[in-house]
Simulated assay, not measured.
Amino acid sequence: MKVFNCVCEFGHRFEGWFDSVESLDEQIKAHLVACPYCDTTNVKRVPTASYVLASRDKAKTEMSDRELEAEIRSKVYSAARTLLKDSENVGERFAEEARAVHQGKAPQRRIHGRCTVEEAEELLDEGIGVLPLPEGVVHENN
């Protein structure tokens, strides 16, 4: 297997493991390669020094479950904080404010706040995109 660098239309860089450059190019053309960050299939291969992972190097790349969980948690929190940047905290009024923004009754802007699971499901059913964030991501200064 060879590792190739790819980038999506939104600038997310990621690696892909493929049998060959031809295989990668075919899969990109067929929209079978998706960005792991935003799921778009509009990706392209970028110049890279491809390499093959030798079996003796495998032990160096293996992570414990705890290390992997910590790395994923760190990336999720980082992505969530990026989403929160420059957004308005509407607190407990989140569901009603999200509806008002969606219906054009309130100014278009990024908001965050709190709502129940039932309220979030109702918003999704109404076509209003919401994204639950892990506890501890939102702070009073966000």
Rank of each mutant, 00 (worst) to 15 (best):
F4G: 05
F4N: 03
F4Q: 03
C6I: 02
V7R: 04
C8P: 05
E9F: 00
F10W: 01
F10E: 01
G11S: 05
H12G: 07
H12S: 00
R13C: 12
R13W: 06
G16N: 09
G16R: 02
G16D: 02
G16L: 04
G16I: 03
F18S: 06
D19C: 11
D19P: 01
D19I: 11
S20G: 12
S23R: 15
S23G: 12
L24Q: 04
D25T: 14
D25F: 00
D25Q: 05
D25P: 04
E26L: 11
E26S: 13
E26N: 14
Q27F: 08
Q27A: 12
A30R: 15
H31S: 07
H31R: 14
V33F: 01
P36T: 06
C38Y: 09
C38M: 02
T40L: 06
T40W: 10
T41N: 15
N42K: 07
V43F: 04
K44I: 07
R45L: 12
P47K: 08
P47A: 13
T48Y: 02
T48I: 07
S50D: 01
S50W: 00
Y51W: 05
Y51T: 10
V52S: 07
S55N: 11
S55V: 05
R56C: 09
D57A: 09
K58W: 10
T61E: 15
T61A: 15
T61M: 15
M63E: 10
D65E: 15
D65M: 12
R66V: 13
R66W: 01
E67P: 00
E67R: 08
L68T: 11
E69Q: 01
A70T: 05
S74Y: 12
S74F: 14
V76T: 06
V76D: 09
V76H: 09
Y77W: 07
Y77H: 08
A79K: 05
A80R: 03
A80P: 06
A80K: 00
A80F: 03
R81L: 02
R81Q: 06
R81E: 11
K85A: 03
D86C: 03
S87A: 05
S87L: 00
E88Q: 08
N89S: 08
N89L: 08
G91P: 13
G91H: 15
E92S: 15
R93G: 04
R93H: 12
R93L: 12
F94N: 00
F94V: 01
A95V: 03
E96I: 05
E97I: 09
R99M: 09
V101H: 15
Q103K: 14
G104H: 14
A106Y: 01
P107C: 13
R114M: 07
C115Q: 08
T116E: 13
V117Q: 01
V117P: 11
E118I: 09
E118F: 10
A120G: 12
A120S: 06
E121D: 07
E121Q: 08
E121R: 04
E122A: 11
L123R: 00
L124F: 08
L124S: 13
L124W: 14
G127D: 09
G127I: 10
G127K: 13
I128P: 10
I128L: 12
G129E: 01
G129R: 11
L131P: 15
L131V: 13
P132L: 06
L133Y: 03
P134T: 02
E135H: 14
E135T: 14
G136M: 03
G136A: 04
E140T: 06
E140H: 11
N141C: 04
N141P: 00
N142W: 08
N142H: 10
